[in-house]
């Protein structure tokens, strides 16, 4: 090779190996050098499997390329890829990410037979009447009366919550949990929220004031970053 510049740098950390791939060379060049590097270092078979974090810098890898790297690194069964880290994301992914982390505010009454379905968090300014249904992939906040069905965390997010000014739902659903109103006539509750309790393995309803303790990451931008 003409230039002596390293395209692949391997660093050992406490959590395993970090593989830095220079982002100015082509993917083929990087792959070739990586193959050599792996061939050079043949530790004996008794050593445990090492987890590798691949840092790509400003390089974007598509799924085929990622698969290729994964195959190459874990070929000898000595390494396993823990994660890929890249400074760039695909535009579609970024848009989907933004979609999922946004709060959609809707101002209407969801009446009997109507379904309001959103991606991300839902802020409904208005009521959900009996027979009406609101669904979101994230949390549901209702500034109004919840008398119908609310389904938070549609895609399986069990940490999602449902909060309402007035709660008298016919059903609450969070991810794959369902709870329904009791058979006897009961009064609704004001300023409460529904969330999944891990210990009891069911949906519980509690005062909104308990949320900061039970769902610490509910506020602010940080949670959205995590969700993405």
């Amino acid at each position: 090779m003409l230039d002596s510049k390293q395209r692949i740098t391997i660093k050992g950390t406490r959590d395993g190996l970090t593989l830095l791939i220079d982002d100015s060379c082509s993917f083929e060049e990087a792959v070739n050098e990586l193959r050599e590097k792996i061939a050079e270092s043949r530790p004996n078979k008794e050593e445990p499997i090492v987890s590798v974090t691949v840092q790509l810098g400003n390089r974007y890898l598509n799924n085929v390329q990622k698969e290729h790297l994964r195959y190459l690194i874990s070929e000898e069964n000595r390494f396993t890829i823990h994660s890929f880290e890249s400074n760039v994301v695909h535009k579609d992914e970024a848009l989907a990410w933004r979609e999922e982390s946004e709060i959609k505010s809707v101002n209407k009454i969801v009446r009997s037979g109507q379904i309001l379905n959103v991606t991300g968090d839902l802020l409904l300014i208005g009521d959900v009447n009996p027979g009406g249904k609101v669904i979101s992939t994230g949390n549901i906040y209702i500034l109004g009366n919840l008398r119908g069905i609310a389904h938070a965390g549609r895609e399986g997010d069990r940490n999602a919550i449902i909060a309402a000014s007035y709660m008298k739902p016919s059903q609450l659903r969070i991810a794959d949990y369902i709870s329904r109103a009791p058979d006897y006539e009961a009064d609704g509750v004001y300023m409460e929220c529904g969330l999944v309790d891990e210990k009891q393995d069911k949906i519980i309803i509690d005062r909104i004031q308990v949320l900061p303790h039970l769902r610490k990451d509910l506020s602010g931008f940080e949670r959205r970053m995590h969700n993405g």
Binding site: R111, S112, G113, Q114, N129, P130, G131, G132
Partner: peptide, 16 residues
Amino acid sequence: EKSSVRDGDRIIGLLE
């Protein structure tokens, strides 16, 4: 009656 109010609500939704 509940059933009548429920259907009325549905109709209002359609009228909107």
